[in-house]
Structure formats: C-alpha cells, structure tokens
Amino acid sequence: MNSYYVAILQGSVLTIGVSLCALLVSIVLGLLGAAAKLSGRPVLVALSSTYTTVIRGVPDLVVMLLVFYGGTIGINHLLELSGSKKTVDINPFLAGVLTIGFIYGAYMTETFRGAILSIPKGQMEAAWAFGMGRIRAFMRITAPQMVRYALPGFTNNWLVLIKSTALVSLIGLKEMTYLSKQASAATRSPFEFFLFSAALFLIYTSVSLFVLRKVNARYSLGTKRGEL
C-alpha cells in the first residue's frame, strides 16, 4: 500500500513540472495577446479577441482532447501527404503543457490587458517626451506597475491552472491524478488515494497563495492593498 503513496508523490513532481511549464507558456501568450489587443490594429485586435473568446467559451477538457488527438491526426496526415510512411505520436507531457498554457494564455491576456489599462497613459507619454524608446519605457514604467495590478488576477489564474493539470491524466501522462486512479483500481480503495491527491493539490495551492501574497505585499508597498 505504501508503494502507491510513494508513486503518487513522485507523480506530484510531474504535476508541478507541467504546471510551471504551462505557466511560462501562458505568460508569453498572455503578454502577446494583451499587446495585440492594445495595439489598435484591427487584424491583431480581431485575432486576439477571437482567441480569448473561443478559449474561454470551450471546456478545457475538449481543448485538451482536440490538441492531443486532433494534433496527432493532423501531423500524421501531413506526413502521409508528403509521402512519408512515418507516424508521430504527440508526447503527453508536451501536449499537456502546450494545451494548458494555450488555455490560460487567454485568461492571462485579459489579466495583463486590464493591468496595463490601469496605468495612467500620461506616464508613458512623459517617458516618450524624455526620449525613452517604447521598449525601455515599457520595462521601466509599465512592467513594474503592471505586475502590481496583475497579481490578483494572476494568482487566481495560477491556482486554477494547477488544478487543471489533473486533465492531463486523460491523455496518459502519469502525474498524481493518473497514479491515484491506477492505485484505486488496483486496491479498490478510491477514497483514500484520491483524498491523498486532493491534499497534495491543497498543499500546492496554499503554498502558492502564501508566496504570491508576499509578492503582492512587496509590490504594493506605499499603496493601498487588497486581498488576493
């Protein structure tokens, strides 16, 4: 029985790996999406708006299955058209990271867009008047303030993202939810193993919330703070 708990603990490391990698993908996509929405260019605004609307309107599980199975079918079809006899299977870890990152990139887009809009436009105009380029002005003026405004929404997105990693168990990735299900089937004791996984998720989210509250306090020095 103890070996199952050890296996689930080892799977929890993979869960954290998927979460962190997906977070990086979502941050990059969120920044690009926010920049596109605020660019004022109709094509970019339309693309980013379509991205956020579709992703927020389709269940995460459906997107996961579409990427994993649809991606595999699409790649193999292209290989077949090119005359190749090789077949490709998408790595479950890669599929999980890219899918979860792609999903939460849409939420990060709105988080970052709202944070940037909260910064008075006059600050950027003043930076340009002093001769700062757009990139330098963004790094020195916009980015530090954007972090403070974005942290509450970022925290919520991160907490939900961690829990969403349970979905990758459906595509065969042996993270802790998958291993809990295997242990439950082998021992016919589903309650204790799923309860153990739930406790691990609760620990991860609680630690994350504690750390992000500290970060929020650090960035909110000298300003009125709200609870995350």
Results as ranks from 00 to 15, higher is better:
Leu29Gln: 03
Val207Arg: 05
Asn2Met: 10
Leu170Glu: 08
Leu209Gly: 08
Gly153Pro: 09
Val168His: 03
Leu61Ala: 00
Phe68Gly: 09
Arg136His: 07
Thr223Tyr: 13
Ser19Arg: 08
Lys181Gly: 14
Arg134Cys: 07
Gln10Val: 13
Asn76His: 04
Leu151Arg: 14
Gly226Phe: 12
Val54Glu: 06
Val45Asn: 15
Ser26Cys: 02
Thr87Lys: 12
Ser12Pro: 05
Val43Glu: 01
Thr155Lys: 08
Pro190Met: 01
Cys21Asn: 01
Trp128Leu: 12
Thr72Pro: 04
Leu9Arg: 07
Ala126Tyr: 01
Thr53His: 07
Ser19Asp: 03
Ala35Met: 15
Gln123Gly: 13
Val97Asp: 02
Ser82Arg: 15
Thr50Val: 13
Leu81His: 08
Ser206His: 05
Lys86Pro: 07
Val67Cys: 05
Gly83Phe: 11
Tyr107Arg: 06
Gln182Ile: 11
Val45Ile: 05
Thr177Gln: 12
Leu79His: 08
Ile75Leu: 05
Gly133Lys: 05
Ala46Asp: 10
Lys224Gln: 10
Pro92Leu: 07
Ile203Trp: 09
Leu212Gln: 11
Lys174His: 15
Met176Trp: 00
Ala106Trp: 00
Thr142Leu: 11
Ile135Leu: 13
Ala183Val: 11
Phe210Trp: 14
Thr50Cys: 15
Ile90Val: 08
Lys163Tyr: 07
Leu23Glu: 00
Leu202Val: 10
Gly30Arg: 02
Val18His: 14
Gly122His: 00
Leu24Pro: 09
Lys86Asp: 12
Tyr104Gly: 01
Arg225Gly: 10
Gln182Ala: 13
Val62Arg: 06
Tyr204His: 06
Ser164Gly: 07
Arg213Gly: 09
Ala183Lys: 08
Lys224Glu: 12
Val58Ile: 13
Trp158Tyr: 10
Lys214Gln: 12
Val6Pro: 01
Leu202Thr: 10
Thr223Phe: 12
Ala185Val: 09
Met64Tyr: 00
Leu170Gln: 10
Leu81Ala: 11
Ala129Asp: 03
Asn216Val: 02
Gly101Pro: 07
Pro59Tyr: 00
Ala22Met: 02
Phe193Val: 13
Ile141Leu: 09
Val67Gly: 02
Ile27Pro: 05
Gly57Trp: 01
Leu81Ile: 10
Lys37Gly: 09
Gly226Asp: 15
Ile16Val: 15
Ala115Trp: 06
Thr52Ala: 02
Met176Lys: 00
Thr53Glu: 13
His77Cys: 11
Gly122Ser: 05
Lys85Met: 14
Lys163Cys: 01
Thr187Glu: 05
Cys21Val: 03
Val211Asn: 01
Ile162Val: 15
Ser206Ile: 13
Ala35Asn: 10
Phe112Glu: 06
Lys163His: 04
Thr177Asp: 15
Leu20Ser: 11
Arg188Cys: 09
Met64Arg: 01
Ile73Ala: 13
Ala35Leu: 14
Ala129Leu: 04
Lys214Trp: 13
Arg140Ile: 13
Thr142Lys: 14
